[in-house]
Amino acid sequence: MFSNFVSYIIQGTAITVAVTLVALPFGLVIGLLMALLHTYGGKAINRLAAAYSLLMRGVPPIVLLFILYFILSGEINLSPFWAGSLSLGIVSSAYQMEILRGALLAVGGGQMTAARAVGMSRLQAIRYIVLPQALRIAIPPWSNEASIVLKDSSLVYALGVPEILRRAQQLSATTQQPFLAFGTAALIYFVLVFATNRGLDYLSERTKLPTHP
């Protein structure tokens, strides 16, 4: 019975990881686009991007999740898994946008100027000069956002996606062992977050630019 218990939760873990692996990159793509528009766009575009960020970060993720879910599943007829994951990604995009915006700011305008001075276009300068530096700077705060998305993936529970939390809840009800069920869930989340942060720490270390001879 115990092994059934464990394997049931582990299947949920795979779904949690899958939700995160969809939400994070999706949020990264939108967040990066928004950060670039905010930093390099004209006044109107800049305002629009700022409003997007303000709006998305001013509402609880679960509320946004429901709204986006009903749009995505209702209008485009996506499955709960996809609608939930993409919604989570959209919520995260605003936070990732702010992280990347800060990183672009930290790189500074001088790098863009120098790139333009050797004859690069704005797009070339962003691609070859600014982004490689900004992404490096963004890794530590992005690692934090990655663990938030990992934990917030439990919100899709509310949409009926059978991820860790939903399964823990079912087990708790059927086995009458809430502590075991939720304790296992907590442990799995902790291990996932820990591994993610460690992995990104390693990446940050590996891509660090050398200083001093």
Binding site: G110, Q111, A114, P132, Q133
Partner: peptide, 28 residues
Amino acid sequence: DKVRQHIGMVFQNFLLFNHLTALDNVMI
């Protein structure tokens, strides 16, 4: 962009591309 290829510029604060080696800075 074409114009700037033909006009070299050196800045007060160097502005080397920080993520590139000296060779790559010159090469890019």
